[in-house]
Simulated scan of single mutants.
Amino acid sequence: MRVIFMGTPEFAVPSLVALDEAYDVVGVVTRPDAVRGRGKRLEPSPVKAEAQARDLRVIEANRITPEVLVVLSELDADIVCVAAYGCILPDSVLAMAPLGCVNVHASLLPRWRGAAPVQRAILAGDERAGVSIMRVVHELDAGVYCAQASTEVADKPCGQLMAEVAELGAHALVSSLADIEAGRATWTEQDASLVTYAHKVEKAEMRLDAADGWLENVRRVQASTDAAPARCVVGGRGLRVLRATAAGESVSAGDVRVARGRVLLGCADGALELLEVKPDGKREMDARSWAAGLRVDQIRWERG
């Protein structure tokens, strides 16, 4: 089977790898090089880097122009596979290949259509997160799906959970293509009454707040990413919280307690224990080491 793959971030890489090992990937479409991470220099997308390492043809495009469409048409693909490409696809792409266009979406549809399904699953306290293999249609993530797979959310950090979901998606995609090619795939319509939307997570949403409960703050830390980190201000100094858990004891909201190597932040209904932090302008460190330099007399914490 001849496959065009479209994807950009790290999440899409396992799907590209699985496709390349199972089928004939005739072209890889990805977003152009951009300033990524902390280096402040142009870098290729994770998908481009993987495709080049595998000696696959790369087409870089922010959108599908008539010129890009000509290139894709000449590849004579049987199917188009998408995983977090980051661009709305025109009808011409959806109808280009005989077997259509399918997407690896990181949620258990119809729950969490949209841009940030894994983060939203964590923030909402979902027990499971997962992936759906769906047909691409005009409406956002509204297509029928032929496969789903899931994993427990538990206390996994967002990065770890996204990596697990990405691997699930890769396996489900390859298996689904075999069923689609053989004409035995079973497609399920989404129940419109169960639809929820995973809007992009804004930085302001991730600010820890003493006026909120400890569970809400723990979930913010768990859902934290470089683009939308969990932050607060302790003693007037900015702090990113990388790992935290329920303290299991009471501390007044807004108070900070450092005792026996533990760092506790008082919330509305309990306390948050910091485990790993990154003070502004400094390296990542365990909370105990960071707290060793604090003067904790009457110190307070607030939103970052």
Rank of each mutant, 00 (worst) to 15 (best):
Q52A: 14
E164W: 04
S73K: 15
P117D: 00
Y145K: 05
E10S: 12
P14N: 07
S252H: 11
L89A: 11
S15F: 01
G254H: 01
L265G: 09
R231E: 15
S132A: 06
L140F: 00
W187N: 00
A292E: 15
F11C: 04
R207V: 04
D78N: 15
E167K: 14
V153T: 14
A106G: 07
I64G: 02
V218E: 01
R36S: 15
A149W: 07
R220D: 01
L89I: 09
V263C: 13
G37W: 10
D191Q: 09
A198W: 09
Q52D: 13
T188Y: 12
Q190N: 12
C87H: 06
E249D: 13
G37V: 05
V165R: 04
V258N: 03
L242S: 02
G169E: 09
A287C: 06
T188D: 02
A291D: 13
V35Y: 12
D269K: 07
R120W: 02
R184E: 15
T225W: 04
E249F: 10
D33C: 05
A124L: 02
E10L: 11
D280V: 07
R63I: 05
V13T: 15
L168W: 02
V29W: 05
V218T: 03
F11G: 11
D155T: 01
A121D: 07
A154N: 14
S252L: 13
E139H: 00
K156Q: 15
L72E: 10
R63N: 10
Q222C: 08
S150W: 07
L177E: 11
K203N: 15
G236T: 02
E205K: 02
G235P: 08
V174Q: 12
L19H: 13
Q148F: 08
G143Q: 00
N103Q: 03
T186R: 04
V296C: 10
R57C: 07
V71P: 02
A106L: 06
D297H: 15
L19A: 14
G27K: 06
E50C: 15
A149P: 09
L123P: 12
L140D: 00
D226W: 08
M285D: 06
A246D: 15
L123S: 09
R219A: 12
L272S: 06
A77T: 01
V153A: 08
A182Y: 02
H199T: 13
G236L: 08
F5S: 10
M1Q: 07
M206Y: 11
A246F: 09
L69K: 02
L177C: 03
S107F: 06
G37M: 06
D226I: 07
V47S: 11
T8D: 01
L161V: 14
E139N: 00
A185R: 00
V17A: 09
E167H: 13
A34S: 08
P117R: 04
I64Y: 00
A129H: 04
R240Q: 03
S175I: 00
W214E: 14
Y85L: 14
N103A: 03
I133K: 00
I88K: 13
E273W: 05
V28M: 04
D91Q: 08
V93L: 03
P46D: 06
G281P: 03
V144F: 05
A292V: 06
V29R: 11
K278Y: 04
C87W: 01
V296I: 14
R63C: 08
G304D: 04
